[in-house]
Design a protein around this nucleic acid. Structure first.
Lengths: 368, 368
DNA sequence: CTGTTAGCGCGTTCAA
DNA sequence: TTGAACGCGCTAACAG
């Protein structure tokens, strides 16, 4: 007796991980049917109290844990959300995604959903395949789409397939779908107007890939302010970047070489704005005095930059949480009793970013 | 005929996503057995060339895509890697993880592995449950462990269970396991010695949670240099932070209030070093002249900070790729023919970080 | 070359 | 209150 017990322990530890305990094992041990064991563990009330206790006890002892894949197949549901991160170039150094992912990850966990992440270049065949795998391969129950683009094919695809998804960002497809977005246009207007109010007349703008919808909206907002204030079109030089810090650095170098030199530079996102500040400082300019700089997003670094960056606050972490919560609701609606009162699911949310004035912006040099 | 066809189209479009094409559907349509269809699609050579063509043709037409969950259950393999991100507090603003995740995500994709991500507070019950789910629930075939801790229970658990994993960071458990790590001790020695060589005598050090192994090693490296140079123990003030920028800011404020005021501050990571720079600048000090600051990691922001930050370079993206590649090899070894020659899998890699001298460090004020 | 049989591990009928 | 039978969708051993 002693011997065989030891033997079993040896076996179970040396093959740990390959031979797992299944419902069948439990059933055999208990002299019950698999069905009963299953129901006992699931907490059905048509199982004798005593039986349930025995089953749970043994399950604990034998270290039973349900095979999730089998549950998924049987339930026809994965309890998983998919998040395909669009990564330009080989790496994603954008703190924006850190924030977002944290929000998404924490919220998904709260609702007991797993999160499947993949990183793919935007508009690539690999990205399309990733979505096919998710939708057709039923790899997840819903998807999160971020950084929406012009004529966004991801959104078209998911809509056509009737696959649950929520986007961070709107689109221009004429399709109705659930999203959360900040009002980039209005936000950028506020920022640009702030610079105008300070007395600036010569502007530089650091834009980003035209396909990104929020970039176009921000550029539009910027232009509309210049126009409304009667500045000539070339009163606003526009140089394109790729959202990374380095490109902001380069763009600013270019802008600051123009004549007349801009006294204010606005960038499409904080990262490029920080790059622009470096470029200016390298040229010996004091940011906030010789040159004003404005960004967009209010990433954590903005507050601690030197000088602290004037920017439009966008609650990225909260947006991550929110789109996740919306997606979970969307998925769970069909599961709920249709007769019940559900919290009315919000479908389209537009947030107005808040202007955060810090020391990187001030009156232009030579003004009263 | 026409009618019923239209009917079918309506059905299929309105229920798109819920009624998917299965092997059975294909088999019925083709008048073949499910087995044959399966093998034709898998490219087995015991299927008539003609049959294979017909099957593939029809699969294409009907939009067949295999149900991945079913494949997983059948093959007893998920082709998925799990990555539990340790997140202190409500958010993870550390660009470190962006870099790492990009490396992991891209490499996993290259090997056709999916990536399951979850965010959990370190050492929490939720984190333990996440690992149980992965291992016992067979949610993935392997796991990536980062930010190793003292007596790391994750590593103990995975080892005991015989579950494939690779860590970024070593441990102190006396367990042999595969990892990639940078030599924090030596790296910090190089950085501290750099400051000593510049002529600094009064140091401040911004540390981090004691449980993080790399922090302890860095602190040890720092202390060993002070000692080797015959500085008194209190010649190196140590204040603790939490790796975030803000805590570096606060820690520096505290350090700079001491007498004698340190002329050099070294932080455990770049983010806190950047925070320290802000604090110094806010006090009117010029970093690089009045105060030298050094960091660790060389995140992209370090190069573009103002002034650019002296730091130890750690190829985070590449480390992400590397641990992923090692994990994939580990998982696939049992699958390979044991007679074949395999590339000898590397198990323990120790990288030496490289000193990157930038303008945030210079001779102490008042020196020749 | 193709089909039959047999599961992977679980949950959900329906009878007993 | 319990168990037998069935199937989720797929793959693999074995016949024919």
């Amino acid at each position: 007796m002693r011997l065989s017990e030891t033997f079993w322990i040896l076996i179970s530890s040396s093959t740990a991980g390959s031979m797992r305990v299944t419902l069948k094992d439990l059933a055999k041990k208990l002299g019950l049917s698999v069905t009963t064991v299953s129901r006992a563990l699931a907490g059905y009330d048509d199982v004798a109290e005593n039986t349930r206790r025995r089953v749970r006890q043994t399950a604990q002892e034998m270290g039973y844990y349900p095979n999730i894949t089998a549950q998924q197949l049987r339930r026809q549901r994965t309890d998983t959300l998919a998040f395909v991160i669009p990564t330009h170039g080989p790496r994603l150094s954008d703190p924006f995604f850190s924030e977002l992912l944290a929000g998404i990850g924490n919220e998904a966990g709260r609702h007991r959903f797993d999160l499947l992440v993949s990183t793919q270049p935007p508009d690539s065949e690999a990205e399309r395949e990733a979505y096919r795998r998710i939708v057709h391969g039923r790899r997840a129950d819903g998807a999160l789409v971020v950084r929406t683009r012009q004529k966004d094919e991801r959104i078209r695809f998911l809509s056509e397939q009737g696959f649950p998804f929520v986007a961070f960002g709107r689109s221009d497809l004429g399709i109705e779908f659930p999203y959360v977005d900040e009002d980039s246009y209005t936000g950028m207007r506020l920022l640009a107007q702030h610079m105008v109010d300070l007395g600036h007349r010569h502007f530089g703008f650091i834009s980003a890939p035209a396909g990104l919808l929020f970039c176009r909206l921000r550029l539009d907002g910027y232009r509309s302010v210049l126009q409304a204030n009667g500045f000539p079109a070339n009163g606003g030089l526009v140089v394109s970047g790729d959202l990374a810090q380095r490109s902001g650095f380069r763009a600013a170098q270019e802008l600051l070489g123009r004549t007349p030199r801009p006294t204010a530079i606005i960038a499409c996102n904080d990262l490029m704005a920080l790059g622009a500040m470096s470029a200016a400082q390298k040229m010996g300019l004091t940011v906030g005095r010789d040159l004003s700089v404005g960004g967009f997003d209010d990433i954590p670094l903005a507050e601690h930059a030197h000088p602290p960056l004037t920017t439009m606050r966008q609650p990225i972490y909260e947006i991550g949480q929110r789109i996740t919560r919306m997606l979970v609701q969307l998925i769970q609606v069909p599961r709920g009793l249709s007769g019940e009162e559900e919290a009315p699911a919000e479908r389209q949310v537009l947030l107005t970013p808040q202007l955060i004035v810090r020391e990187s912006s001030g009156p232009p040099p030579g003004s009263a």
